[in-house]
Design a protein around this nucleic acid. Structure first.
Lengths: 134, 134
DNA sequence: TGACAAATGTAATAACATCACATATCGAAA
DNA sequence: TTTCGATATGTGATGTTATTACATTTGTCA
């Protein structure tokens, strides 16, 4: 994995499905979308998702059991900045941002408590600006 | 709901199970523990969990589909400070903390983006001090 | 070419959560 | 005190999400 990742057929299909979508998709929704491409079983989706997560090309939203294509593919390929997600419960849109101060505060806590963090989830549930005014 | 919440029988049973436990429990683990108390179906557990979440007496850990009794029952009954959880993937122990700066940064983002947040999840996965040195 | 690693196909099963409907319990208003 | 509504409960079926197990194929490279 260097600049762009060479993807296998299944990985490409799954990634494209997520990239096409205007919001997060569940694994089973992806499966249904890919039936015509030969997908028959959940594992085909989950295996591709695992790799895409490894490569940092997609994110998993823990609070809604769904997956999104990464919004800023270049930006945070470099660093260990944590990514926060704001998830609209009306329209499903997800906004992605990262904040060095939050990242720093979390790291301060983990350092002073001897906790080795591997992955950190920050998910804000609520209603986005569009849906709030409507 | 004032100082302490008056709980129904099922709610008490579920809460006690979580309070007894030394770590997070899944809904189905709770169900199994309460078979002798007359529990027969998942819904009995989920309904109690929903109420206890309402009352702020327990938390749901989204990243592991499990529930814990609130560690600081008095502390954050007051405010809207977000709570972060550090979850050890070796021993399952969960540490709970809140940080005003993180809370503030999140609120800054939501305010400047017109996002009305309802619930925010911060979960740090990793290895705790005890398990890391062992 | 032979051999190993990675990817794939498929069925079955496990784990997590909700729906639909019937019944019971309790408090407040008529 | 009766009646009504809100809340809680019991139970079976079903829906949704994720993994296990095992067989097969494909790609890489010595």
């Amino acid at each position: 994995m260097t600049a762009t990742q060479e993807l296998t057929k299944n990985q490409s299909l799954v990634f494209d499905a997520l990239a096409r979508a205007d919001g997060p998709l569940s694994a089973y929704t992806i499966l249904d979308q890919l039936r015509n491409d030969g997908f028959r079983a959940p594992l085909q989706v989950y295996r591709a998702l695992d790799k895409l997560l490894d490569y940092g090309m997609i994110h998993r939203l823990e609070s809604i059991n769904a997956f999104v294509a990464c919004a800023h593919p270049h930006t945070h390929s470099h660093g260990h900045g944590m990514i926060a997600f704001a998830i609209c419960e009306k329209c499903g849109q997800v906004s992605e941002f990262s904040d060095d101060i939050i990242t720093g505060r979390v790291r301060e806590w983990t350092n002073s408590n001897g906790f080795k963090q591997s992955k950190t989830t920050i998910e804000i549930r609520g209603v986005c600006a569009n849906c709030g005014t409507a």
